[in-house]
Design a protein around this nucleic acid. Structure first.
Length: 830
DNA sequence: CTCTCAAAAGTCAAT
DNA sequence: CTTTTGAGAG
């Protein structure tokens, strides 16, 4: 493919590139005037209902624009209108627009909204995620540097499998290398655009540890290219490499994309930043070329972001990209959007108060004119289950009051927290959906089936072949698997070819037959997919659809049959998942009539957790705080607001960790439109043990008057026992009613009198972090009688556990048998 | 090569 | 607690 054959559309288009600094954009010649004939009225419509800074963000023209958009400030609206106005005024053709969003779902939504604004489907626009855009570029250009366009995308799990194999081969585990450690380091390096060679140049080879790491990195890179595969980080990094190594390729895309817009800019990493830089470079005049390749200024760049919502530093996001934007792109215009159209003032005040504790940030205050709204509701459960029960009860109540389930979301910091929530929600008959979690495409059975498809699409991918070699069981073991690999390597053929020539290996007749059969099956599938060999231009013909090929593979391999025959009770569910995947391929075919197998695999590889969101599902959405970014809900439950969870134990010690966790909390708060619930638990089960939990330090950063504590941390641990309600007593029927709600100020009376007197807690009733009830070394043994604040008197039957986890098994006179954590339970010895 | 049982690890977030 | 991995027997 010659470089000049690309993008005839972009070079033949009359370009209007504005190089002025001001707001006038008519200077580029006649077309501006031409647009003004039909333009103004339409443009007015585009600005309809926008506030002044939003209008400016839509209208400003210049080389670079930074829109600092606080949460809920209507940035999606601004971005879509900006794109629409560029096209409407004829400043750009749709094909000259490249817009990067955070999820595929956001991209689809943006495309739809731009289409609606323009009254036509804007074809040719690239609106996609970083990864999707790069895959598109890489597939086109792969042949330039030793890959084919059918390359496989390895997800992080695949990468780890590969790394694991390499560590084992090199026996690097004896040097203290772990899979996760190596995977993390390689990913980090790739995000910094380093490769094995560049790393080796600066490595200290006197250190055997480092030498070995270089070797692992080298082998990993080699394995990837041998398999014709990219890992997630490569998708960005290799695109940058491609642009740098092949200037004419880069020039093609620089000519094509005249307007680049990036959403969530605060979460870009160095590789992504470099990609944007590459794309916005001016195109130099090529010496000796004709006039068609005249020099062009760099594309205009618009970035939108909010440094307060940067939550992906752990995967390489560099907040400096946005903080230093003005320095990077000199002459950049900065527009601030501070008016919030999403949440009530109470929610915003809480968010402002929390985030203001992060130093080193530009002060920025969200405001709204919709009024204070409801107070934030706080609740402290005795256990994770108790907390979940509160959530379920409140969701039910909201639903009865007319809030549809789909407008309610429950957030948590770690995926492990879903279990308790799911249990209670099922029991309470609340329809829900977990986003992310154990994702559909990460399930073993789905990966198995996808490996069949990958094996067909990319014959170089040994990993996919190895995966299906003995799935379902064909009597091919690891020894045979390795033998095939060695054979392929020594003869310099693909793994697939090695399988075809299995008879040459002199294995047993049964094994050889099984391998050859499998190879035949894959060859037939390849043929079904593309009857006339892979031609340069897609000589379509009677190409089998993805669904057909998949059905054929499943039939012939007997995968589903084997599952159904399995004894494991979960196998039936697995078989159903496979059926669902078949349905997904049919759906794909319907939505993408010309879609190829490679297109399907790409789509499947790049789904994000938030893409699974189905607005019409009519269910409550459960997700992590990270997944929640960019979404909004009528009512939001933010659960597990505890130390060690939020901030997470691991993050608390990392540099910048607590600040990032605070931003995460801030992101969670600002997702809520009308109602926000903050909940935590006194004890949390993890690793099969029950541990004492403390209220999060961030909780006390919220002004007390904003929170209506149904049960404050102080109350949940109080010893005085005048009346705090039952902690883990079963609640009658539909949960709370208003009479059980206790004002925050009341909670003071439940505290120890001396503590209440010594501190100005009236102002900060949330300041309870250090005051969690502690019974100290209260000694209990079987036979002791105790009194519990809620359950009354009872007799200790047994004491188990040690230290802070000592548990008393108590038979209460009226409340029945209970297990209590001695250290924190509201009990006293009689 | 497959199956069974026991030990060990994992849960911090995700394209 | 659950899920995955490894060793050893059949």
């Amino acid at each position: 493919m010659t470089p000049t054959s690309h993008q005839t559309d972009s070079t033949s288009v009359p370009l209007i590139v504005d190089d002025s600094r001001g707001r006038s954009f008519g200077g580029a010649g006649g077309s501006g005037a031409g647009a003004s004939g039909a333009g103004p009225s339409f443009n007015d419509a585009l600005l309809d209902g926008l506030n002044p800074p939003q209008k400016e963000a839509v209208e400003y023209r210049g080389p670079s624009l930074l829109i600092v958009a606080g949460a809920g400030s209507g940035k999606t609206s601004v971005l879509t209108r900006r794109i629409a106005s560029l096209i409407d005024s004829r400043e750009a053709w749709p094909s000259q627009i490249l817009a990067i969003t955070f999820t595929n779902k956001a991209a689809a939504e943006m495309r739809e909204r731009v289409g609606a604004l323009l009254g036509q489907t804007a074809e040719g626009m690239w609106i996609s995620t970083f990864h999707s855009a790069c895959v598109r570029i890489l597939r086109r250009e792969a042949e330039n540097f030793g890959f084919t366009k059918a390359f496989t995308i390895y997800d992080s799990h695949d990468s780890r499998t590969l790394i694991k194999r390499i560590i084992k081969e090199l026996q690097a585990d004896t040097f203290g290398f772990t899979v996760s450690g190596v995977a993390g380091k390689i990913s980090k390096l790739k995000n910094e655009l380093a490769d094995a060679d560049s790393y080796a140049r600066s490595a200290n080879f006197d250190d055997p540890q480092e030498r070995l790491f270089v070797e692992i990195f080298r082998q990993y890179t080699r394995s990837l290219s041998a398999a014709n595969a990219f890992d997630f980080d490569d998708l960005i990094g290799q695109t940058v490499y491609l642009f740098r190594a092949f200037p004419h390729v880069a020039a093609t895309y620089r000519r094509r994309f005249r307007h680049i817009l990036v959403d969530e800019y605060q979460d870009t990493n160095h590789a992504q930043y470099s990609l944007i830089r590459e794309l916005t470079l001016p195109v130099e005049e090529e010496p000796g070329s004709d006039q068609r390749t005249a020099s062009l200024p760099g594309a205009s760049l618009t970035v939108v972001g909010d440094s307060d919502q940067s939550i992906y530093a752990f995967r390489g996001a560099d907040i400096r990209n946005i903080v230093e934007f003005e320095r990077d792109f000199s002459g950049a215009k900065v527009i601030l959007l501070e008016q919030n159209y999403r949440s009530t003032q109470n929610i915003l005040s809480a968010a402002n108060a929390v985030i203001s504790n992060n130093f080193d940030r530009k002060d920025k205050k969200l405001w709204t004119d919709v009024g204070n709204g409801e107070k934030i509701v706080g609740f402290t459960g005795y256990s994770g289950h108790d907390e979940a029960q509160f959530v379920a009860d409140e969701v039910t109540k909201l639903h009865e009051q007319g809030t549809p389930y789909k407008d309610v979301a429950v957030f948590y910091r770690t995926n492990a927290q879903t279990r308790a929530l799911e249990e209670i929600l099922i029991r309470s008959a609340v329809p829900y959906r977990v986003l992310g979690g154990t994702r559909f495409y990460e399930r073993a059975e789905i990966k198995d089936v996808l490996a069949y498809l990958i094996a067909v699409a990319n014959p170089f991918d040994a990993m996919a072949l190895r995966r299906i070699l003995n799935t379902p069981k064909r009597g091919i073991g690891p020894a045979t698997e390795t033998a095939l690999g060695v054979f392929a390597q020594t003869n310099e053929i693909t793994y697939r070819e090695a399988m075809r020539r299995a008879p040459e290996l002199g294995l047993g007749p049964k094994v050889t037959g099984a391998i050859v059969d499998l190879a035949k099956m894959l060859d037939e599938a390849t043929l079904l997919l593309d009857p006339d060999q892979p031609a340069d231009d897609g000589s379509v013909g009677a190409t089998g659809s993805v669904a057909e090929v998949l059905t054929m593979l499943l039939d012939r391999s007997g995968y589903v049959t084997a599952l159904r025959a399995g004894r494991d009770p979960q196998d039936e569910a697995r078989a159903e998942n496979v059926e669902e995947l078949v349905a997904v391929t049919r759906e794909f075919q319907k939505n993408n009539p010309g879609g190829t197998l490679v297109d399907f695999l790409t789509e499947v590889s790049l789904v994000a957790a938030a893409d699974e969101l189905d607005d019409s599902s009519g269910t409550v959405s459960l997700m992590t705080l990270h997944t929640a970014k960019g979404l909004e809900y009528e009512a939001v439950f933010l659960t597990g607001v505890e130390e060690d969870l939020l901030p997470h134990r691991m993050a608390a010690t990392e540099p910048g960790g607590p600040a990032e966790e605070r931003r995460l909390f801030y992101v969670g708060i600002t997702r809520a439109r009308k109602r926000l619930y903050l909940s935590l638990a006194m004890t949390r089960a993890q690793f099969g043990e029950t541990a004492v939990a403390m209220p999060s330090r961030y909780l006390q950063e919220i002004p007390a008057e904003l929170i209506d504590w149904r049960q404050s941390p102080g109350m949940a641990t109080s010893r005085g026992g005048t009346q705090p309600r039952a902690l883990n007593a079963s609640r009658p029927g539909g949960g709370f009613n208003s009479r059980s709600a206790v004002r925050a100020s009341d909670s003071l009376s439940f505290r120890d009198a001396d503590a209440a007197a010594s501190r100005p807690k009236a102002e900060w009733p949330n300041r309870v972090t250090a005051q969690v009830r502690d019974n100290g070394n209260l000694e209990l043994q079987a036979g002791d009688r105790i009194r519990h604040v809620d359950f009354g008197e009872g007799r200790v039957n047994a004491v188990t556990g040690e230290g802070t986890k000592r548990v008393a098994h108590v038979q209460f006179d009226s409340a029945g048998a209970k297990k209590l954590l001695i250290k924190i339970a509201p009990i006293e010895k009689l």
